[in-house]
Structure formats: C-alpha cells, structure tokens
Design a protein around this nucleic acid. Structure first.
Lengths: 346, 346
DNA sequence: AATTACATAGAAAACGTTTAAATTTAGGCA
DNA sequence: TGCCTAAATTTAAACGTTTTCTATGTAATT
C-alpha cells in the first residue's frame, strides 16, 4: 500500500504538504494540490486508518455487542445501528457473543459475563468510543463490571445497572393497542397467554391490557390471564383452558404461542377470525404463513438500532443525558385475518 | 487509558522492559516481571491494538462484507465466520451493505458496485488482510474491480470473477437427494417448481433432479418442470398446472413456493403428504409452521461461514490455493410430514 | 587479576499519520 | 537596494507500541 511518504517523494514535496493536501487544509498552492492529488490517485493511495487514529487519539468508532446475531430481530437492530453510523460519519465494530450456540436456552450468567468482559476488553483495546449492547433476553444476562470506563447504551433489553441508558420498545402501549383492537372488533372476554411469570415484557403487556380494559369499562378477570413459556405447544395447551372458560378473543404474547392457538382451533373446528379473535406479538414470518394470517404487533427494531446509536453519539458529543434514561419506542399493530369482528358485541 | 509508558514510570524501568514483560518475551528477571505485571493490573492496562498493529504492520483482521445482514441466512453465515476467527486468533470487521433497504428487489449493479468499492476502500484503510464477501443473490451483483490488491473469498454466491474462490452449497447433490427421497416414498411422476429460468441455483437443482430420475430409470418429462419467481403466490398457481398434468409429488425450489403449493392443496382438499408429496428448499421457519409440516433441504450456512474463513486464512498463510477454487458443501435433507409414502408405486 | 560469558536492562528507531512551529520564497514598497 | 509581509513549504515531534542493538553488572573461567 502506498504511503504519504511515497507520494511526497514522487511529488518532490514534504510529507506535511501531502498530508495537508489530502486533508484539504488549505495554504497550499493550487499547482501543488493538483500534482499531489494526481500522484495519490496514480499510486491508488488510501489513508491508513490505524495510523490516523493513533495520531488523532480518536477512532470515531463504536462497539456493538450482540448477544446473538442469529437470534431473530438482532440483525434488524444492527441494521439500524449501521445506518445511523453511516449517516453520522461513525464506524462500528461488531462483537457477536453467540450465546445461543454456546449456551442454548440455559445461559450461565457467570460464563456470559466472562464473554462480555473479554469482548469489552477487545473493544477498548481497539479504541472504541462507546458501546451498544444488543440483548435478546429481557434483561441483559451479563452485568457490565465497570461502565464508568466507557459510555454504554443497552437496547432490546433492560440493563442490569439502572444508571445505563436503555432503548426499548413500549410493551405496555403496544399491549394497550392490541387489546383495544380486540375490543374494537367487539370482544369483551379477552384472554391473555403471557410469557413466564418472571418476564418483564409480559408484566408490562399485562399492564397495558388491564389499562385498555379499564378505559373501556370492561371488568378485569384474573382467570383470563394464563402463563406460558413462549413455545408453540404451550399455546395449544393454554388456548384450550381459555376457550373453555369462555373467552372470545386471545392476546398471545408472542406469535409462536399464537400459532399454537391456531393449531388447537384448527383441530377443534373453531374458526380463528370468526369464532375466536387472535392477536400475537413479534411479527414473525410464521404469522404470514398461518391460516388465517395472524394479526400481530410489530417491533420498531430498525428504529431501536438507530435510536440507541443516536443516544450513544449524543453522549459522546457531550450532550447531557439523564442518568438511567429509558427511551421507549412505539410498536405498530398489524391487522391481518385473525381479528375479524365478532358476531355479538358486549 | 493507561499506556506502557505510565507503567514504565511507576515501575522505574524502561518501556522496552515493560513491552517485553507484557509480551512474555523472556530475558527479564522474575522480580521485574512480577512488579510490572502487578502495576499493569493496577492501572487496568489494556494494550492499544491500533498502535500495536501499526507497529507490526499486521492486523490479524479480515473484512466481512455482507450484501444484507437482515436477509435470512446471512447472520448464520457470519456466525460461522465469527466462530472460525475466534478459534484462530483472528478478528473481523463487518461491513453491511444493506442492499435490501436500499434497492429492494431491483438492485442497480452500478450503485451496488459503488457501495462495494467504498466498503473495500474502508476495509483496506483499516488494514484488513483479506475479505469475505457474503452474497445472497445467486451471483454477486457487484464486480470487484481490483481483487489483486487483497485476497477475496466469496460465499453464498458465485463471484463475478472466475478466479476468486467461492464457498457454496451443492445444489445439484441436494436436489438429487431430495428427488431420491420422493422416489423412495414411491413417486415417479415428480414435478418441479423451479425459480426463474436464469437462476443458476435452479439450473443446478434441475440437473440433480434429472440425475436422480436417470439413476432410478424414470423417464424425464420436460413438462414436469415449471418456472416461478420464488414467491408464494406463484407456487399456488404452478401447483395447479402440475397437479392437473398428473404429478404425485412436487419438488419446489424454495419453501415459500412450497407454501403456495400447500395453500392450493388445502383449498382443493388435496391432502399434502397423502395425495401429494412435497419437498421444499431452504429450511425456513415457515416450513415448521405449515400444516402439514414441510420436508425441505437445509443449507450448511454455519459451515459455509467457517469454511470460507478457513479458505481465506489458508491463502493468508501462503498455502497454495487453486485459482478459482469452488468449495461445495453438502446440504441435509429434513423430512417432515409433507413426504409420506404414496399409496401406489411405479 | 584479567578475560569471558551471560543475564538483565535500556536507548533508539520505526510504523504512517497530523500539526504546531519554523523556515524559505516571492512580491511589494520605501 | 533593503526591508517587510504574506504565502508556501518544511522540520520535527508526537501518538503507543515492538524490536534490534548496545550497555551494564555480575559470575565464572583462565
């Protein structure tokens, strides 16, 4: 690779002059500028990013740690980070932890923490100016040991440390709107298939659900909430319970469990969309593949990536950020075939 | 961040000594080693990767260019690259082109090329030692203008330049095996719903299909091959044609079109798995969501990532590589419910 | 006591840049 | 001619490392 020095030699000027020309600093005669530029082009010169950032002491680079790139939704968030970086003259380096292949569904917090630490170390070594942590478990598994050292922003999960800013989607609002849709379609006996009882996401969604019932003066029946494990089979099981207890609509807290509901209904000749209204959560591909197509809640993934980056770059630019700021982004309701008007209203 | 210089001061030794200790070079007394190590730990020292690679003139870093990270399959390939790099002491930097959001289904080769060039420029700037190009169109859209400058390896797509090594999956073999499965299940009138006529992948799959027919002494009927556009709707349309012409099994060249076949059959009370055998390609989530569950071909994505990296690192290590080498990795057949034995055999 | 050998440590240059300060050059004016 | 100014260019140091070569001190050998 050609260096500034080689250009200087060919052009019969000093390396300082070349540097100034290349960085458009001015104070150089037009003739010299032209000549240097021409030679740089001829030599196919490319500035050495490494040398430059060593000298300048700044890399304009942020680190992006993903708990698992292959987990659905993560790439879309990274895409948002990518776009925002590009539009703001920043670079990023990706550090993928591969939690899924390493740990499956039972991540060992100890081991996870080690991976995060070593990734953070590597990134600090590479002089990043800040780090975005993209989780996929509701709460980041691995605590960040010393976040004072470098600005951190979490997205797609709550941070373990309440002082670190998070960029999240608004579960409660989304659940409110999903429930309202069901109510608008004429339902008042609305069941909920939630995630595990310890899920923050489900807890917030239940809040939104209750809020919507309250706003519509529909009494809340605790029996209408049942708890699953996010898997398809449990959706099948729980829908039986719910339907037998008389609900005419179900709000499943993810599309997989909603697919289980459809399985059960198909098997028992209950027409989803006619006899039972159903809405899921996540907007996965499975929702367009099912019969009927599934109404669902779509997550603002790309936007989360962009916003997380924006928050981080703001911090880097010295803009005052409230400690522990939580940015909540709105989801969008996608109505498909599984939520048609019920025959009778309440 | 602490530097080697600060450590040297605190330890009352020269920076050369510190460097030697940190790099375990030997020739330093145990006492000094202990002292320097202790101070380094106290100061939370982390080597400056930038300075180090500037000095050494090597980054042990490769570039990974993805045409689109959010396109299904890409993250899994990157995961493989990640794993292989980690196991071999290499770093990688990701450059995501976001073709999908930028261009949709009609990528402009001119614009694509520009993006690739600028990404390659950036990576060369950052002193990468080689580049892996992860495509998703059958042939890389953007030609690499000057591959002499740095080793390139393509994966998941054919390169525009025949001299660049590619790591691919073996369409022909997979198609052979998929067809053989249909034959084993008792079918001899086997239709094919291929991709567009200009698809290299489909062309190879048709070859494998014909080969299997030949091996089983089943006459080849050109009418049994119809061409689609990879979309679900076209699967619906074409299955009508095929079924009317008397096939009892269909090999769809992707899962989406296979889903369209199921749509048609469900609507016309044809029982897939009983009246009609069906196998798709790609192993997308949709195949487990459909009723019946779809038999399909699973791509060796992770393996492709690993192998592409292996090929690149071999080149970097100076191992002789045949120009234009094509590495073909085997797919796996996944049998689910859509390929049950037919009632009569041929 | 002089020489050699070895273990340990340090000095200095280098990697490819940027930049403040110094120097050269040319032109304008008394 | 001599001086001043502004423009153009160069010098040199610095960023944080690694590494070669050299220097020092001590112990072993003659």
């Amino acid at each position: 690779m050609a260096t500034i020095r080689e250009i200087a030699e060919k052009a019969n000027v000093s390396i300082a002059t070349v540097s100034k020309v290349l960085n458009r600093k001015g104070g150089i005669s037009q003739e010299t500028v032209n000549n240097v530029m021409k030679i740089a082009r001829e030599l196919n010169y490319r500035p050495n990013f490494t040398a430059r950032s060593l000298k300048n002491g700044q890399s304009r680079t942020i680190g992006v740690i993903t708990e698992d790139l292959t987990v659905f939704n993560t790439p879309e968030i990274v895409d948002g980070i990518d776009a925002y970086c590009e539009n703001n003259g920043y670079h990023y380096i990706l550090g993928n932890l591969r939690f899924n292949k390493r740990f499956g569904n039972q991540p060992d917090p100890e081991e996870c923490a080690k991976l995060v630490h070593s990734q953070v170390d590597t990134m600090l070594s590479k002089q990043v100016n800040g780090i975005i942590y993209v989780g996929y478990h509701s709460r980041a598994i691995a605590p960040v040991y010393n976040y004072e050292e470098i600005p951190f922003v979490y997205t797609y999960c709550y941070s373990t440390d309440p002082n670190i800013p998070c960029v999240l989607y608004d579960d409660q609002k989304a659940a409110y709107e999903a429930t309202q849709l069901l109510i608008d379609r004429g339902h008042c006996d609305i069941g909920v298939i939630a995630g595990p009882t310890n899920s923050i996401h489900s807890a917030n969604r239940i809040l939104g659900y209750q809020e919507a019932l309250y706003a519509n003066k529909i009494p809340f029946n605790p029996k209408h909430i049942v708890y699953g494990n996010w898997e398809r089979d449990i959706g099948y099981e729980l829908s039986k319970e719910l339907i037998q207890s008389g609900v005419t609509a179900i709000f499943a807290h993810n599309d997989l469990m909603a697919a289980g509901v459809i399985d059960y209904c198909t098997e028992h000749k209950i027409q989803v969309g006619k006899d039972l209204a159903l809405i899921g959560f996540d907007n996965r591909e499975i929702g367009t593949a099912s019969r009927p197509k599934l109404s669902t809640v779509s997550l603002p993934l790309f936007d989360m990536g962009q916003t997380a980056t924006q928050v981080l770059l703001n911090i880097l630019a010295g803009k005052h950020i409230q400690r522990g700021q939580k940015v909540m982004l709105a989801c969008t309701i996608i109505e498909r075939e599984s939520t048609m008007p019920a025959s009778d209203s309440c």
